[in-house]
Design a protein around this nucleic acid. Structure first.
Length: 611
RNA sequence: GCCCGAGUGGCUCAACUGGAUAGAGCAACGGCCUUCGAAGCCGUGGGUUGCAGGUUCGAAUCCUGCCUCGGGCGCCA
């Protein structure tokens, strides 16, 4: 399937970049995550459960007791939700269980909460359990139990936070997929940052991810590109009356024309293309222009830290008769008709608001058809989960592609594939909106941003907000106040831990992890406990963010973790004389550093040791 | 007109997917470096979560109807 040359390029897996299987018990951890969502925990797997799991086990036991006593009906099976509290006065964790059960039990929530607490087994992990408000149960962890997460982090290292929820399922993430008609702009950058981070997040959740880029290298836009280059070759300007009607007006077209005329060779994907230099050979100009712009995009993405496993060319669909085959399959599926000399698909049979043309009157196909053929090919390649990350301006294709796939009667699920849509990026400079239109001429490229504000900051900024929110990218702000970018705040926390370790070394008081781990109970400050609770929430956050396909949650989490670290660092001196306390605090710092590192890796942002 | 997304301090965004007093960062103001990195910390001010109803112990979150903004509704991709 993969060896017939249909794919433009296959890349060697980057062993260094993607964390592979790890030696520590991630599958076991996955079971725990699941348990938190309401299933019975598997008892006895570890004597070092994180706090939330401990509380879950205790509550489950209490529920059983109440059922036996007849206080609760035997058939209630609530999904127990345990939340980290916002307010320290509410303890470390809280549950609304009594509120949920009040109705089925026919008892007031507070009375039920009291019964639950009475039925709670003794546990050394908890120092106190309270009833609060309308019937919340608040749990106070004792320091030593909360600190166990540090030991877990030391054991698991880079693997801490990873899980096997994906069960190694093959998932394809298609993203960027820009037309090879110009440089990548900020919108593509957002797609690249979100798509790549989402891929990393899914990998951390145990999925086998294929990153794919689809090139629309056939069709009318490519003709426009060719005509534009041909016009520049002739020395025409966009202001000339003879300039092609829908031509690309950007300056970069001049570069393409110059390179073409000087016989340059460019390498893109798996093949090299040499310019013919013949100003009248449209086919040669087309091939060269596409190759040239593919190479440019590829370099930009590489500079952005984004690489793909598969580059899929639309032209390959035609070359391999996949488009024709798809038409045949659609016709025999019985949802097509001819009208006005065109061939239509009755997409209204599948929820579209109007039928769509497949084959134009003049004989060519609309873009919609290769899209269907492409997705059929994805399905045939065995991806049961496909996520298309794209700009919200393409959302109308969702209904059409899905309708087309249904019309094939190929047994493809109704809501396949999945989509993650990001809203448009509004770019401003000097308070003015900068248009992101290739045809309009001047605009801000992804390359500009990387050069001006740096790769880490650009990636972070573009991935740190929910894809559904429209965002404004203020170039002046990003460029002039790079220190205000939150990514530095996070990186600084990482560098600070490294710095303290260096100082310990310099002072001849080198970090002794075993002494530290043996004395974690000395971490008694509230801020230290906050940090430990935050660290304990990391695996759960990875699982949740992956399930929701929201990499921005990772950015959010890291910001909070870094904030709590800075706060703690400022208040609690690490390099104290007492070596047990000192090493325990260093352990906490190193654990924070580890989680920062694991999180930044998911965002594709570096974790510098000094800044 | 129909479809999708969004509306939260002056600005950019959160709110663990229905929980407790709606939180951060910029911007403003006041403090903290002869002590581990001040790219940091502490504090102050700033809100009828677009509007109106509804659902319930409880709503920024769910339902209905309006309003505003962005995107889409092509035999362009």
């Amino acid at each position: 399937m993969h060896d017939n040359g249909r794919f433009g390029h296959h890349r060697e897996p980057l062993r260094g970049r993607r964390p592979d299987a790890h030696p520590f018990g991630a599958p076991r951890y996955a079971a725990r995550i699941f348990a938190i969502n309401g299933e019975r925990p598997s008892p006895g797997l570890s004597n070092r459960l994180i706090m939330k799991e401990t509380i879950l086990e205790l509550l489950t036991a209490a529920l059983d007791t109440l059922k036996h006593q007849g206080v609760l009906p035997a058939d209630v099976a609530p999904s127990i939700k345990i939340d980290a509290t916002k307010d320290k006065a509410h303890g470390d964790y809280a549950t609304n269980l009594a509120l949920m059960l009040a109705k089925p039990a026919g008892k007031p929530p507070r009375a039920l909460a009291e019964a639950l607490i009475d039925a709670l087994p003794e546990s050394s992990a908890l120092s106190r359990v309270d009833i609060a408000g309308p019937g919340f149960i608040n749990f106070f962890a004792n320091t030593e139990a909360a600190a166990q997460v540090i030991t877990t982090i030391f054991e698991q290292g880079d693997a801490f936070g990873r899980n096997q929820n994906g069960n190694n399922e093959q998932v394809q993430v298609e993203f960027v997929s820009a037309n090879p008609t110009g440089p990548l702009h900020v919108g593509h950058g957002r797609g690249a940052a979100i798509g790549d981070s989402l891929s990393r997040l899914l990998e951390a959740s145990g999925y086998a991810v294929t990153r794919e880029f689809y090139y629309n290298d056939a069709g009318a836009q490519i003709d426009n590109l060719m005509l534009s280059v041909a016009a520049r070759v002739k020395g025409l300007e966009p202001s000339d009356p003879a300039w092609p009607k829908d031509g690309y007006r950007g300056e970069y077209i001049k570069d393409v024309a110059r390179a073409y005329m000087s016989g340059e060779t460019v390498t893109a994907g798996d093949r090299a293309t040499t310019a013919k230099g013949d100003p009248t050979d449209e086919s040669a100009i087309r091939d060269f222009a596409v190759a040239y712009l593919r190479r440019e995009q590829d370099l930009d993405l590489r500079a952005f830290g984004v690489e793909f496993d598969v580059y899929f060319l639309e032209s390959a669909l035609y070359r391999d008769h996949k488009v024709d085959e798809t038409v045949k399959a659609l016709v025999s599926g019985g949802h097509t008709y001819e009208s006005d000399g065109a061939l239509w698909l009755k997409t209204t049979d599948f929820g579209d608001d109007k039928d769509r043309v497949m084959r134009k009157r003049e004989g060519g196909y609309t873009y919609f058809l290769p899209d269907v053929a492409y997705h059929l090919d994805k399905w045939n390649r065995g991806f049961t989960t496909v996520i298309n990350e794209q700009g919200a301006d393409h959302h109308s294709t969702i209904t059409r592609v899905r309708a087309g796939l249904q019309a094939l009667n190929a047994g493809i699920p109704q809501n396949w594939p999945d989509y993650v849509l990001h809203q448009m990026v509004l770019v401003t400079r000097s308070g003015q909106e900068v248009k992101i239109s290739k045809r309009a001429g001047s605009y801000v490229t992804l390359r500009d941003l990387i050069d001006e504000v740096g790769r880490d900051a650009t990636r972070y900024f573009l991935v740190a907000r929910a894809a559904t929110s429209q965002m404004t990218f203020d170039i002046d702000l990003a460029r002039s106040q790079t220190n205000d970018n939150p990514v530095y705040y996070i990186q600084y926390a990482h560098a600070r831990v490294c710095s303290v370790l260096r100082k310990a070394e310099r002072d001849d008081r080198a970090f002794d992890s075993s002494e530290g781990l043996a004395n974690l109970a000395l971490l008694e400050d509230d801020r230290e406990k906050n940090l430990m609770n935050r660290l304990a929430a990391w695996p759960e956050l990875v699982a949740r963010a992956a399930a929701a396909r929201e990499p921005y949650q990772v950015a959010q989490y890291l910001q909070e973790l870094a904030g709590e670290f800075h706060s703690c660092y400022n208040a609690v001196k690490v390099m104290v004389d007492d070596s047990a306390t000192r090493n325990a605090r260093l352990c906490l710092g190193v654990a924070v550093r580890q989680v920062l590192r694991n999180g930044l890796a998911i965002l594709g942002v570096s974790a510098p040791e000094e800044m």
